[in-house]
Computed example of a mutant assay.
Amino acid sequence: MARKYRLGVTRKAVNAVVKALLARGIPVAGATGWLLTTRGRKSGADRTTPVNVVEVAGDRWLVSPYGTVGWVHNLRAGATARLWRGRTRETWEVEEADAATAGPVLRAYVRKIPVTAPFFDAKLTDPPEAFAAEADRHPVFRLARSRA
């Protein structure tokens, strides 16, 4: 059974360090680490969190390995993702993937960022269909056309 994500003191501290490094343009987690800023669906305030972007089949994808977290709700409500790292800024519209589309993306994500593997029931060696079965617990968004 997959582990459940808990945002504890340690994770908050790690996120703060990662955010500071990414804000200065220092790559974290290879070249996949970005800061994602979304507009709060209730407050309207900007919310920023570190994320990883994975490229699969020529498209760029945002994956929520820890489930339906705050930024997922915000993207569903606003459909605009602002990604930044250092001086690089990108604004994207997002489209949530269906389970069949999400399966190969989730598999690629876990292979690229294996620290997230304990949060999935599917194993690294499983076929994409095993990951597709978990798509409802791990939302996947395709970064569509750039608006900036």
Results as ranks from 00 to 15, higher is better:
Leu35Tyr: 03
Ala79Pro: 06
Leu106Met: 12
Thr101Cys: 02
Asp98Ile: 15
Ala2Ile: 00
Glu96Arg: 12
Asp98Pro: 07
Val105Ser: 06
Ala108Thr: 08
Ala45Arg: 15
Asp98Gly: 15
Asp46Cys: 10
Trp84Ser: 15
Ala77Met: 13
Ser64Ile: 05
Glu95Met: 13
Val17Asp: 15
Pro127Trp: 00
Pro128Arg: 00
Glu90Ala: 12
Lys42Phe: 13
Arg11Tyr: 13
Leu21Met: 07
Ala45Phe: 12
Pro127Met: 01
Pro27Val: 00
Leu143Gln: 14
Asp46Met: 12
Gly33Ile: 04
Ala130Asp: 07
Pro104Asn: 05
Leu62Tyr: 02
Arg60Tyr: 09
Gly67Thr: 05
Leu35Arg: 02
Lys4Glu: 13
Thr80Pro: 02
Glu93Phe: 03
Gly70Ile: 00
Ser43Ala: 13
Pro50Ser: 10
Leu83Ala: 09
Pro27His: 05
Trp92Glu: 02
Gly33Cys: 10
Trp34Leu: 09
Trp34Pro: 00
Arg85Gly: 00
Val94Asp: 03
Gly58Pro: 10
Val51Met: 04
Val9Thr: 14
Ser146Trp: 06
Thr80Cys: 10
Ala133Tyr: 02
Ala57Lys: 10
Glu93Thr: 01
Lys42His: 13
Val14Tyr: 11
Ala130His: 05
Arg60Phe: 04
Ala130Met: 07
Ala100Pro: 00
Arg6Ala: 07
Thr88Tyr: 04
Ala99Pro: 02
Ala57Tyr: 07
Thr32Arg: 13
Asp121His: 08
Val14Trp: 10
Gly78Cys: 11
Ala57Leu: 09
Arg82Glu: 08
Trp84Tyr: 15
Arg107Ser: 01
Phe120Ala: 07
Ala132Gln: 08
Thr101Lys: 01
Val54Leu: 12
Ser43Gly: 09
Thr37Phe: 11
Thr38Asp: 06
Gly44Asp: 10
Ser146Phe: 09
Lys112Ser: 15
Ala135Glu: 02
Thr32Pro: 00
Ala133Pro: 00
Ala23Leu: 13
Val51Gln: 03
Val14Pro: 04
Leu22Val: 01
Glu96Asp: 14
Leu35Thr: 03
Arg82Met: 10
Ile113Pro: 01
Val53Thr: 03
Val63Ala: 07
Val115Ile: 09
Ile26Val: 15
Ala20Tyr: 09
Gly40Gln: 03
Pro50Glu: 02
Ala57Ser: 14
Pro139Leu: 08
Asn15Thr: 05
Thr10Ser: 08
Leu106Arg: 01
Thr80Tyr: 06
His73Asp: 12
Arg147Lys: 14
Val9Leu: 15
Tyr66Thr: 06
Arg147Asp: 06
Met1Glu: 10
Arg82Lys: 13
Gly33Glu: 07
Gly30Val: 13
Asp59Gln: 11
Ala117Gly: 09
Gly44Ile: 11
Leu35Ile: 07
Val140His: 06
Thr32Ala: 14
Asn15Gly: 04
Gly67Phe: 02
Leu22Lys: 03
Asn74Tyr: 06
Leu124Thr: 10
Thr88Arg: 09
Arg24Pro: 00
Pro127Lys: 00
Val51Ile: 12
Thr68Cys: 14
Ala132Gly: 08
Arg76Tyr: 12
Ser64Arg: 05
Ala31Ser: 14
Leu124Trp: 03
Ala135Pro: 03
Phe131Trp: 00
Gly8Lys: 08
Asp136Leu: 15
Ala16Pro: 05
Ala31Gly: 10
Arg89Cys: 07
Thr49Phe: 04
Trp84Pro: 05
